[in-house]
Deep mutational scan, measured.
Amino acid sequence: MQRVNMIMAESPGLITICLLGYLLSAECTVFLDHENANKILNRPKRYNSGKLEEFVQGNLERECMEEKCSFEEAREVFENTERTTEFWKQYVDGDQCESNPCLNGGSCKDDINSYECWCPFGFEGKNCELDVTCNIKNGRCEQFCKNSADNKVVCSCTEGYRLAENQKSCEPAVPFPCGRVSVSQTSKLTRAETVFPDVDYVNSTEAETILDNITQSTQSFNDFTRVVGGEDAKPGQFPWQVVLNGKVDAFCGGSIVNEKWIVTAAHCVETGVKITVVAGEHNIEETEHTEQKRNVIRIIPHHNYNAAINKYNHDIALLELDEPLVLNSYVTPICIADKEYTNIFLKFGSGYVSGWGRVFHKGRSALVLQYLRVPLVDRATCLRSTKFTIYNNMFCAGFHEGGRDSCQGDSGGPHVTEVEGTSFLTGIISWGEECAMKGKYGIYTKVSRYVNWIKEKTKLT
């Protein structure tokens, strides 16, 4: 034993070699072989497995989906700052455009905790909710729209109204504003409101030439003092309507412009014939205590009207009353817009006519005020429907199939267009061939041609 100890002390290297040989010859039971080890760690190889990531292109799944990435790591994937920024906006807080917040056709661009709407022409605001041009839906104005110097929408209202708090709607500024039905039992019968379409306001006024200088022999019209197929109006439903009495009662109609003036057809009036105007009328054979009678003290036909040349060209006249009318729910003026808007309103496509005229061709006159909704007829169809001249200051309205029309005794009465609950004068009943005849239409004086003249002559002093 002493000898062994001496050998170990003198030859430590020998001992180490012996131990190493023993270990190498022993069977290893701690580690699995290569094949079995792979069965336990069965993990798919990654895209760049075996390579240094710093030297390969980034992978979106590896960089940002398996674990949260930084902007720089995302930049490695896209290799483009702009594309990385677009991805980053949604990656950080989701897609803010998912709810489609942009209105009126706006395009949404996502941002971090926010979004941006790219608005089409005519709109602005956070969600493109603000109209900035009158060309689109009248700028959301209830009545009139004008573009300011910086191309912003400025709404306005006709006389007797003021802008509401929203700067879009119009509200009454006087007790009985024009064009409004205020009798409670008839307010439910107000005709369907007309909503502004998209309009090209630059070209809204037709490029028409008034044929002022045409000389033409007097034409022989049949029954051209021209509501057939209409309905009984309720008291106060058309408070701007008046009836004219002269040699015979209810020979023509008219509309209240203001307390002192009536507008009617020029062919209705004769110099030297006494005319009485009755406002607030409903049943011409009954006294309903809503009527107001006034005498006409002055007749002003349009300066281009000449019955000797043509009885229905420039067929418009103004009547001055001896005493002002007292405005109330049964006696209310009709609204008159400017030339541009009167023309736009007419193009809405349908209007209402009213009167006490004959209820059928050569038949009896109506006792109760009649009204009828009539569609506008395109000019080409209008011209083809008659052998008589249709001037540019006239328009056609009615039904091709016949059966409904204005008729004798309705002449001078109103053709009105309702705009968001307020009625505007767009025409004056003038003439036609018979009444409600198939293929024939009622012919009306186009008020847009005469609004400046009306307003100039009827100013209240």
Rank of each mutant, 00 (worst) to 15 (best):
K293Y: 15
L130V: 13
P235W: 07
E35R: 10
E320P: 00
N343T: 09
T422N: 04
T445F: 03
E98R: 11
Y312N: 07
H400K: 13
D111T: 06
V243Y: 15
E323F: 09
H289A: 07
T445G: 02
K234Q: 08
F71H: 04
V77H: 05
E76P: 02
K347N: 12
C141I: 00
K152R: 15
D110Y: 10
H289P: 15
V419E: 02
P177E: 01
K274G: 14
P101R: 05
T209A: 12
V4K: 14
C128V: 02
T389W: 09
F399Y: 15
T458S: 08
S156E: 11
L52T: 05
N147D: 11
S365N: 15
G272Q: 08
Q216V: 13
P172K: 06
P375V: 07
T84S: 06
C178L: 00
L24R: 04
A149R: 10
T342R: 00
E72Y: 04
W118Q: 14
E35K: 11
I334R: 00
E401Y: 09
L319H: 00
Q219K: 12
R294E: 01
F399E: 12
V331W: 00
D33W: 11
R294I: 02
Y371T: 14
D131H: 12
N393C: 03
Q2Y: 13
E193A: 15
G236I: 06
D200G: 12
K362G: 15
Q185M: 10
N127L: 11
V359E: 07
S354C: 08
V296F: 01
S204H: 11
T332I: 09
Q167D: 10
V277S: 01
K45Y: 01
G230R: 10
T29R: 09
A265T: 04
P414F: 11
K457P: 02
K260D: 03
R404S: 15
R226F: 07
S107I: 04
T85V: 09
P172N: 06
R358W: 06
D110R: 11
I275D: 02
K234D: 10
E231F: 08
G105P: 03
G254W: 00
E35L: 07
K45V: 04
L103P: 04
N127I: 09
Y330C: 03
N80F: 02
T218R: 09
N127K: 10
K339Y: 08
S25N: 12
Q90F: 09
N138W: 08
S187D: 14
G21V: 13
W118C: 15
Y352C: 06
L376I: 11
V56I: 12
K347C: 03
F196R: 08
K455A: 06
T422W: 02
T458D: 00
A26S: 12
S423A: 11
Y47F: 12
S220Y: 07
D338W: 04
T445M: 11
E86Y: 08
V77A: 06
